[in-house]
């Protein structure tokens, strides 16, 4: 498959994984391997002296690039500090910018997100903002210097799939940076649809980590992303109101 390129860096896989929700690091490790991912998110939290093992060790062993997020931040100031701490801790200037509006929906706050994005771009970060399926905001964030935009399909962890495919298509049509469908993927067909709509990549976690068989679902997602990308590149037939015979009609 053709490479995904974000901020000049190439990835052979168009499936970006999150690591939240896995019952153990062993299960996570197997799922990451099955997914074929080359870019995976982690969160930043207070160090727990009693924690055993580290998600960073798992990623390092697999040669997967780490993408720290700012999950749990409600303000631009919190997100900027978290991104700077992640840069210091992990030695990467890449950040998945996530500023949420409230805990019930976990929907992204567009005002705080935009504010943080401007500050982080000015500070030299490669910023990948998580946003609603809003074409206007996506365009503004691209103009502000973000390296990609990551619209949601539906709320985080909901598994409701892509609720507004039309908006995703509008974002894709206008975007000059990669569009990563982030959040809401429930099963393989959702991931395939994201790619068919023209997204450049899919980011998912819960759909795999909380599946009954995470490794098998990771493998399904990998295939779905590849199939969806291939279908997008192949160019689908137009939808028709009535049948068009595929066999000769004359005897």
């Amino acid at each position: 498959m053709d490479d995904l390129v974000i901020a000049g860096e190439k990835f052979g896989s168009r499936l970006i994984m999150g690591t939240g929700g896995a019952p153990s690091l062993e299960v996570l490790d197997q799922a990451l391997e099955a997914s074929g991912t080359e870019l995976t998110t982690v969160a930043m939290r207070r160090l727990d002296p009693h924690a055993r093992g580290s998600v960073l060790d798992v990623l390092r062993r697999r040669g997967i690039k780490v993408l720290p997020n700012t999950a749990g931040c409600f303000t631009a100031g919190d997100a900027v500090l978290t991104a700077r701490l992640a840069r210091e801790a992990l030695g990467t200037n890449w950040v998945k910018l996530e500023v949420i509006a409230d805990e019930r929906t976990l929907l992204p706050d567009p005002i705080e997100t935009f504010d943080a994005a401007e500050r982080l771009v000015a500070d030299g970060f490669v910023v990948l903002p998580y946003i609603g399926d809003d074409p206007a905001l996506a365009r503004r964030l691209e103009q502000a210097g973000c390296a990609a935009v990551m619209p949601l399909g539906s709320p985080i962890g909901s598994g409701l799939g892509i609720r507004n495919p039309h908006s995703i298509e509008l974002i894709v049509e206008a975007a000059g940076v990669p569009v990563v469908l982030d959040a809401g993927i429930g099963t393989a067909s959702d991931a395939a649809l994201a790619m068919e709509l023209g997204c450049d990549a899919v980011l998912l976690a819960t759909a795999v980590t909380r599946a009954q068989r995470p490794g098998l679902m990771a493998s399904a997602m990998r295939s779905a992303v590849q199939a969806g990308r291939a279908a997008r590149l192949a160019g689908r037939i137009p939808r028709r109101r009535y049948a068009e015979a595929s066999s000769p009609m004359s005897p």
């Binding site: 999150g18 690591t19 939240g20 929700g21 896995a22 690091l25 996570l28 998110t41 982690v42 969160a43 930043m44 939290r45 207070r46 160090l47 727990d48 924690a51 580290s54 998600v55 960073l56 780490v66 993408l67 720290p68 997020n69 999950a71 701490l85 992640a86 801790a89 992990l90 998945k96 996530e98 980011l203 976690a205």
Partner: peptide, 10 residues
């Protein structure tokens, strides 16, 4: 003082 590290998330 806040001492942070990476954990599973996102």
């Amino acid at each position: 003082v806040e001492v942070l590290t990476a954990v599973q998330g996102g």
